[in-house]
Structures are given as C-alpha cells and as structure tokens.
Design a protein around this nucleic acid. Structure first.
Length: 283
DNA sequence: ACCCACCCCTGGGCGC
DNA sequence: TGCGCCCAGGGGTGGG
C-alpha cells in the first residue's frame, strides 16, 4: 500500500481493534507471508498463541504490535497488504494470507495481500523497536524527527531529490505519491541533484512533505481502489486533493500546464513541466 | 560507504 | 475471447 498516512490509519485501527486482546489460534495460509520469519511458520504461530497485544506502533511504513512476552509481531504491507479486523464468520477473502483469532471470540485479525510483497514476522525482544527495522529513519510527523539532520544528510548525498525522499533510512513514510506531491509543492523536479539543493530549499521541501502527509492522514489517506483501506475496510479521501500524482495531461492547479508523466526507476513520476523544469542531467 | 539495477508477485486494463 | 504487454502507494539484496 501504502505510505505513511495509509499505514497510520491502519495502526489506529489496530490500536482500537486488537490492543489489550489475547491471541488465540493463528493460521498461516501462505508461507510467503511469513518468509521474513526465519524460524518458519510453525515457530511464528507458537510465539503468538496465548500472547496479549500491548499496543500498536509504527515506524515509517512498518507496523508492530508489542506483545506481553516482550516480542513484537512486526509487519509491512508491501504494495497490496491489508490488515482487517472483521467478524470471525465473515467469508474468507481471496488473498487471505494469515488469520489471527482472539481468545475473547470477538473480531479476528486478517492479513490479506494480493501481491505478497508484504509480510509479518515475530521479532524477539522487539517491543520497543524491532531490530529488523532499526535502520528505518523517523518520519516527518514524528515529534523526535530531526529536521536539521535531515537537511544536512540530504545535502551530503550524491543523488536525485526524489530518490532521497524515497530513501527510508533518510526520512521514512514517503512513497511515490507523497514524494511527487511534496516536489510539486516545492516546485522542484525530482531529478535535481541533492548536493545542489540549498539549506532553505531542503527545509521548505521537508515542510511540504510534512504538510501533505498530515493533510492526507486527516482525510484517511489515499485510496485509488479497494486495496488501500483501514482495518474496517474504509477508503481514504485524499485522492481528490492530489496535485500531481496520477494527473497526467490534466492542468496544473498553479499554472494550467498539463501535468507530465515520466518513466522513472521502473515506475512513474508526475510533475508540472513549467513549475518543475527538468534539470540538464536528471538523476 | 555509497548508489543503483534487479528481483520478488498478482491482477486489471489495454491493444491487437 | 484470448494473448501478451504494461502498469501498480513496497523493500531487500548484491554488484559496481
């Protein structure tokens, strides 16, 4: 899925829907969904049954549920993962990968993932911050995010600005949509060299990224289709507020020039040809 | 120590 | 209808 706003919506749903509850039976329907759990599906299940979920936390696009054992049920939604909290008798979804029942017999947790890029694992002693995601930077909405550290690290990089925004070890939570949106607001082409971005411009860009993430979160995130939904299956409404992403050929809201789409790293970038001129040597 | 190309998947939409 | 492409909010890995 999902970038920060969409993942945060899921975290809020997990906090409301599973925190404080004790896990019962766990069924792994597809081994690929737990491929990051090195000890295998059996071990994964054994570490969870009978454990109580203490909270729901997030770092960037990663989620984890600290358990009363001190371990953490950790996961990433990949491109198409969903975590739904649903009545146990709800018919099974086509791409159901893992199913978690709870001892209270109430709603169960289901991990559904069409493309199987996502996955879950149990990290030993990971309640505070799972070791597997210790390399992920804080996100711009995190009160402990260090703006000046971001600015200096960005400017020390030898790369393109959009690549830097997508580097989860520099700043987390930003993906293809919100990178393009932040760049549009900053009137910067994503191929601009990081080392040529001035301090003030880097701060401005960070501010725009923070704004767009926050505004999207307030709208429940961006949902082009039913793949990106909350734990209750509800879609977000931020698509209507996008200025660049997915708007190829439509007029720029600032200057009226048709938004362009460029092939970029086996994906797409959307920008305004006039407000965001391409540098001589894009990166 | 960095940066980047490649790989992992399924399904929907399109042109032929 | 069907086939083959292209496309899609992800990250990890390994080579240069």
């Amino acid at each position: 899925m999902p970038e920060l706003p969409e993942v945060e919506v899921v975290r809020l749903g997990l906090e409301k829907g599973v925190a404080g509850r004790t896990i019962g039976a766990v069924d792994v329907h597809h081994p690929r969904a737990v491929r990051r759990h090195d000890a295998g599906p059996r071990d994964f299940v054994d570490l969870l049954a009978g454990r109580t979920v203490v909270a729901a936390r997030r770092r960037g696009k990663y989620l984890w549920l600290p358990l009363d054992s001190g371990d953490a049920l950790t996961g990433h939604l990949g491109m198409s993962g969903q975590l739904l909290v649903v009545p146990p008798d709800k018919p099974v979804e086509t791409h159901l990968r893992i199913r978690f029942a709870f001892t209270d017999g109430g709603r169960e947790l289901r991990f559904i993932d069409q493309r199987t890029f996502g996955g879950l694992l149990v990290v030993a002693g990971g309640a505070e911050l799972p070791s597997t995601i210790a390399h992920i930077a804080r996100d711009p909405l995190d009160p402990e995010f260090d703006d000046e550290l971001f600015v200096s690290r960005l400017r020390r990089k030898q790369s393109g600005v959009k690549r830097a925004l997508l580097d989860q070890t520099l700043v987390s939570g930003i993906g293809n949509i919100y990178a393009d949106e932040a760049l549009w607001r900053a009137q910067l082409h994503g191929g601009r060299a990081t080392e040529a971005v001035t301090g003030p411009k880097a701060r401005e860009l960070l501010g725009h990224a923070r704004d767009v993430l926050g505004e999207s979160l307030a709208q429940g995130g961006t949902s082009f289709d039913a793949l990106y939904v909350s734990t209750d299956g509800v879609s977000g409404l931020f698509e209507r507020s996008l200025n660049a992403y997915g708007r190829e050929g439509e007029p720029c809201y600032r200057c009226g020039t048709p938004i362009r789409r460029e092939a970029w790293m086996n994906r797409s970038s959307y920008s305004c040809p006039r407000c965001q001129p391409r540098p001589r040597a894009p990166r």
